[in-house]
């Protein structure tokens, strides 16, 4: 919907003076004399902003909601090296959430096109803080302080973890291209987390740490909306560019994905070789890399055969949503009648 008075530019979000523009103040539209405007949620420029805001706000949760202490017994059944791996993986995830909370989401705010987008980004930023905080809740419930301190030290020294953090932080730096920033952000949200998310899904598929897995699934659901939304805004911005500019950004995206994939592969080998899980985790990486590209509106990179994830892991991601494949006659029956929670308001029949 077009706003009633003038172009979007007149509605630039309040905080919308980009670092890169501050250093090139000749751009007309960024003169700080623009009227400070209150956000009006009854005048949308992009319906997606409200749709995503609504989903994010109903999704809101805190780690206290999950009975993590029910996992104490299960934790005790893990071997010491399995416990250490789990703590390290969660520390790596904490680092990514910390980056997205403190740098990533705030760095995208000056690039926002609508005031509502700015508001959505503040929600994203805050939830990243909740995610980062919730790993510490897991730690304080299950682990000793010494083990946890050791893992945080490890995260500062691990070259692969540090390399991926740096690669992303570079694109968030002031003056960086706003669309490259979105590309990196979608890769963080929809790809980089998954070498870590694999492990709690794996434990859950073996009926271990199931409450921890419930918490991780809440994080995964949030990241799905984040990756979707940032990717969506990227696609909108791409539409306004020339063919040549679009091609340049697409090259950049695939190049960055290759770079990150290399780092992720090393990281995965180092973490998962001892358990013999590396190959399976890499398949999961391919699958998620393809999904990250789709969020950006691009085609997949890895062939379908290289991205066929172990069904037990898929089932751990989406429990109770059995795979329907009426076409090939496999999967559970297509018969309907399964009660689902829906409201009937808008249906006439």
């Amino acid at each position: 919907m077009m706003p009633p008075h003038g172009p979007l530019r007149a509605h630039r979000p309040l905080g919308n003076v980009r670092q890169d523009e501050r250093t090139h103040p000749m751009k007309e539209e960024i003169k700080p004399c623009a009227v400070p405007r209150a956000i009006n949620w009854n005048r949308l420029h992009d319906e997606k902003d409200l749709e995503v805001w609504n989903r994010l706000t109903v999704n809101f949760w805190l780690p206290e909601k999950v009975p993590l202490s029910n996992d104490i017994q299960s934790w005790a059944t893990l071997k010491p090296e399995e416990q250490q791996l789990t703590i390290r993986v969660f520390t790596g995830l904490t680092l990514l959430d910390t980056i997205q909370n403190a740098v990533g989401a705030p760095a995208m705010m000056p690039d926002a096109i609508t005031p509502h987008e700015e508001a959505v980004l503040t929600n994203i930023a805050f939830m990243e803080a909740v995610h980062a905080r919730s790993y510490s809740s897991i730690f304080s419930t299950l682990c000793s302080t010494k083990e946890v301190d050791e893992a945080f030290r490890w995260s500062e020294e691990n070259p692969h973890l540090q390399a991926k953090a740096r690669a992303i932080l570079q694109t968030y730096a002031p003056g960086a291209n706003p669309l490259k920033r979105k590309i990196a952000s979608v890769f963080l949200e929809s790809f980089l987390f998954y070498s870590g998310f694999y492990l709690p899904m794996y434990w859950s598929s073996r009926a271990k740490l199931t409450n921890t897995a419930d918490l991780i699934r809440l994080i995964i659901r949030d990241e799905a909306v984040h990756g979707y939304y940032i990717g969506y805004k990227f696609q909108r911005a791409m539409e306004r560019l020339s063919e040549a500019e679009r091609a340049e950004l697409k090259d950049y995206a695939f190049g960055l994905l290759f770079e990150l994939y290399e780092i992720e592969s090393r990281y995965t080998e180092e973490l998962y070789d001892p358990l013999g899980l590396t190959e399976e985790v890499k398949v999961f990486l391919h699958y998620n890399a393809n999904k990250a590209l789709q969020n950006l509106g691009f085609e997949s990179l890895f062939p379908a055969e290289a991205a066929e994830v172990n069904p037990a892991i898929l089932a751990a991601l989406s429990p109770d949503s059995e795979n329907h494949d009426f076409f090939s006659g496999s999967g559970s029956s297509y018969v309907i009648g399964r009660a689902v929670a829906t409201e009937d308001e808008d249906w006439d029949f």
Partner: peptide, 22 residues
Amino acid sequence: RNFGTTYALAGRVIAAKCNIPL
């Protein structure tokens, strides 16, 4: 799938409501 239990839920709702196969 990352939406968990509501993965592809629209199909189950429409199938039940309209009595057609998913």
